[in-house]
């Protein structure tokens, strides 16, 4: 039987009494690959932030790994096991060098320095960014930042990937590599994107977030 990983029950959320999400119900099971589309400003990022506990819903319940999550403390486990890629890579990276940024996640998971180094090496090979490892973050180009941001998420080897527009700003080669990686190594993910082709290759079904509601849009 498939187990439920993320379950949102009647979630409503608004910014300063400006409603964004209204009584949303959503479920993501282990092994499911799901895409989320929706017009600009429909609340897709807000949706991810609620799952990660950065925003607290006005009403409704968040269940992750079968437990209700309310306080920041409950979300620590969630944050360690879910990998969130921010829409803006500048939001993701904050360490002085690429190397340290990639190692940050694994170190938080309790890996030793040597293990973290090993992970950095492997991830760099997968994403072909070995030449970037010692570079300071702020000297990277926009596309490079995106790849490094992806690498920092994949380095944590999360149970589930929450990716906010992973394909934007990537060149053809890197994009294909990402698709291949998502196909072969990723079991569970939720991808927010406007890129239908990308979604078609990486997910099994697509939900749409529109008019404050989430509904099933397409099953492949």
């Amino acid at each position: 039987m498939e187990k439920t990983l993320i379950k949102l029950e009647n979630i409503s959320f608004g910014y300063n009494s400006f409603p964004v999400l209204k009584n949303i119900n959503f479920e993501l099971k282990f092994g499911e690959k799901v895409g989320l589309i929706g017009p600009n400003g429909s609340g897709k990022t807000t949706f991810l932030y609620i799952i990660m506990g950065f925003l607290k819903p006005v009403s409704g319940k968040v269940f992750i790994f079968g437990r209700e999550r309310k306080k920041d403390k409950d979300f620590l486990e969630v944050r360690q096991k879910l990998g969130l890629l921010f829409q803006d890579s500048d939001s993701q990276l904050f360490c002085p060098t690429v190397k340290e940024d990639i190692a940050f996640g694994p170190l938080n998971l309790g890996k030793s320095r040597n293990e973290a180094k090993e992970i950095v090496k492997n991830i760099a090979k997968v994403f072909n960014i070995e030449h970037l490892l010692d570079r300071p973050i702020y000297k990277l180009s926009g596309g490079e930042k995106k790849i490094v941001a992806l690498a920092t998420v994949f380095a944590m080897n999360p149970v589930c990937y929450l990716l906010d527009e992973p394909s934007s700003g990537l060149d053809e080669d890197t994009r294909n590599k990402l698709i291949k990686f998502l196909k072969n190594h990723v079991k569970t993910c939720l991808i927010v994107s406007h890129d239908r082709k990308f979604l078609k290759e990486t997910v099994n079904k697509i939900y749409i977030l529109k008019n404050k509601k989430v509904s099933l849009y397409q099953v492949f």
Partner: peptide, 8 residues
């Protein structure tokens, strides 16, 4: 958020 998102 970046720090928390990676389980710090």
């Amino acid at each position: 958020r970046a720090v928390l998102a990676r389980g710090f």
